[in-house]
């Protein structure tokens, strides 16, 4: 199990590339991945697809991170809908969601696991 899961992880950038309390975007095998960094949390990195399904542009990494009703969310910079950082669900519309990718910080390395 673990061996299989591990094989998918890949290093995409360094901790220094992240911005505390905000997001950046990485290109991982052709997929735009928005990576958010909340250093105060035990698992401080989150990865979502960068595409805003409502605004229709690749911009989620450039939104504002926050919490709503106890859930971590990213607000799209285009029309301000919120997407759950852990599940990708859209708070305002239950018919849309963005893909979530597994992400973790190991030492200085940021690792992402895309679905195979």
């Amino acid at each position: 199990m673990t061996a299989l899961a591990l094989r998918e992880w890949e290093v995409v950038c360094n901790a220094g590339d992240l911005v505390a309390g905000s997001g950046v975007c990485a290109l991982v095998r052709g997929i735009q991945v928005a990576i958010f960094y909340l250093p105060q949390l035990e698992n401080p990195v989150f990865a979502l697809d960068n595409h805003d399904p409502i605004g229709g542009a690749n911009v989620l990494s450039r939104g504002i991170v926050g919490d709503l009703g106890g859930e971590l969310v990213i607000a799209s910079p285009l029309y301000k809908q919120h997407f759950n950082l852990r599940t990708g669900a859209c708070v305002e519309r239950d018919d849309v969601a963005v893909p979530v990718y597994r992400a973790r910080l190991e030492g200085d390395e940021v690792l992402i696991a895309l679905p195979t």
């Binding site: 505390a20 911009v59 450039r62 504002i64």
Partner: peptide
Amino acid sequence: HVGLQDTNDTFLANMQKDG
């Protein structure tokens, strides 16, 4: 103050519909 701003303030420019 980083991370507090709307994208427009962060990038000191106005985001358009296509990003």
